[in-house]
C-alpha cells in the first residue's frame, strides 16, 4: 500500500515536469518563440554533451570550491553551535548577527571578496561558506533547544555531567536537524560557488557561463544551468543517503 503511494507520489511531479518540458519543446520547435531567444530542451541537452570536454576544467574548479566551502561551513557551524548552546551570552550576542549576515545580498559581497582576496578559489570558498553556514547552524541550534527537558532531567537525575548530557543526548538528538540544514546547504553550495565565479574569477562554471552569455550563446547558458541543477540534485541525494546510513533508527518513521 505504502509502496503504491510512493510510486504515485513520484508519478505526479514527474508527469507534470514532463508536460512542462514538452510544452517548452513544442513552443520552440514550432517557431512560436525563436531559437536564439529560447533554445529547446533538446538543444540544451545536446549542447551540454558537446561542451562537456571543454567545460570539464571549469566544472572541477566549481566543484572544488563548493566542496571546500561546504566542509568549512559544516565545521564552523557545528563548532559555533556547540559553543553558542553552552554559553548563553554568546548565543544572545551572536544570533542576531548571524541573521543580519544573511540579509546582505551575496551579489554585493562576491565582488568585494574578489577585490580583497583576488580572483582565485579562496574568495569563492568564502561565498559558499557564508551561504551554507547559516542553514546548518540555525537548524542545529534549534535542535539543541528542542531536546526534551524531561530527558535532560532524567540524565541529571542519573548524575550525568554537562558534557555527558551533551555528547550522549543533545548532540545525537540534534542530528536530524543537522541533516535538515545540511540538505539546504548542499543544494545551495554549487550555486553559491557559481555566483562567486560570476562576479569575477579565472575559472569555473560561473565564468564560463558569463562568457557564453556575453557571446549570446544562450544554448550554452542553458546547458550550464542544466548541469548545475543536476549537480545540486545529486548532492542533495548524497546527503539523504548519508542520513539514512548514519541514522538507522530514523528510517522506519512513516
Amino acid at each position: 500500500m505504502r509502496k503504491l503511494e510512493n510510486i504515485e507520489n513520484r508519478i505526479i511531479p514527474i508527469t507534470f515536469l514532463g508536460i512542462l518540458i514538452f510544452l517548452w519543446y513544442f513552443v520552440v520547435e514550432r517557431g512560436i518563440i525563436q531559437r536564439f531567444i529560447l533554445p529547446s530542451p533538446v538543444d540544451a541537452v545536446t549542447t551540454l554533451f558537446r561542451i562537456l570536454p571543454e567545460i570539464k576544467h571549469h566544472l572541477i574548479v566549481t566543484l572544488t570550491e563548493a566542496f571546500y566551502g561546504l566542509i568549512f561551513a559544516i565545521v564552523l557551524a557545528v563548532a559555533l553551535a556547540v559553543l553558542m548552546d553552552n554559553i548563553l551570552m554568546l548565543k544572545r550576542a551572536l544570533y542576531p548577527l548571524l541573521v543580519i549576515s544573511q540579509t546582505i545580498p551575496i551579489l554585493v559581497l562576491a565582488p568585494l571578496f574578489a577585490m580583497w582576496f583576488g580572483l582565485g578559489k579562496f574568495p569563492k570558498i568564502i561565498v559558499v561558506m557564508l551561504v551554507c553556514f547559516f542553514p546548518i547552524i540555525v537548524s542545529l541550534l534549534e535542535g539543541f533547544d528542542s531536546v526534551d527537558k524531561d530527558l535532560i532531567n532524567l540524565m541529571k537525575s542519573m548524575g550525568a555531567s554537562k558534557i555527558k548530557i551533551f555528547t550522549m543526548v543533545k548532540f545525537p538528538a540534534s542530528i536530524v536537524n543537522f541533516f535538515t540544514g545540511l540538505k539546504v546547504a548542499a543544494t545551495y553550495c554549487i550555486m553559491a560557488a557559481f555566483i562567486g565565479e560570476w562576479m569575477g574569477g579565472k575559472a569555473g562554471l560561473g565564468l564560463y557561463m558569463m562568457r557564453a552569455k556575453k557571446s549570446l550563446r544562450i544554448d550554452k547558458v542553458f546547458a550550464v544551468v542544466l548541469l548545475i541543477v543536476i549537480l545540486s540534485m545529486v548532492l542533495f541525494k548524497i546527503v539523504s543517503i548519508l542520513q539514512r546510513l548514519l541514522m538507522p533508527w530514523n528510517n522506519e518513521k512513516q
Binding site: L154, K156, S157, M158, G159, M168, M247, W249
Partner: peptide, 29 residues
C-alpha cells in the same frame, strides 16, 4: 541528585540507541 532512580510517564528511551544500550545507559554514565 544521582541517588534514586526516576522514571517518567514518557519512556524517554534514546531513539538512536538499541534497547540494550538504553538499559545500560545509567551504567555508562
Amino acid at each position: 541528585s544521582g541517588r534514586v532512580s526516576y522514571m517518567y510517564q514518557k519512556d524517554l528511551l534514546l531513539p538512536w540507541k538499541k534497547i540494550i544500550d538504553n538499559a545500560a545507559l545509567p551504567l555508562v554514565i
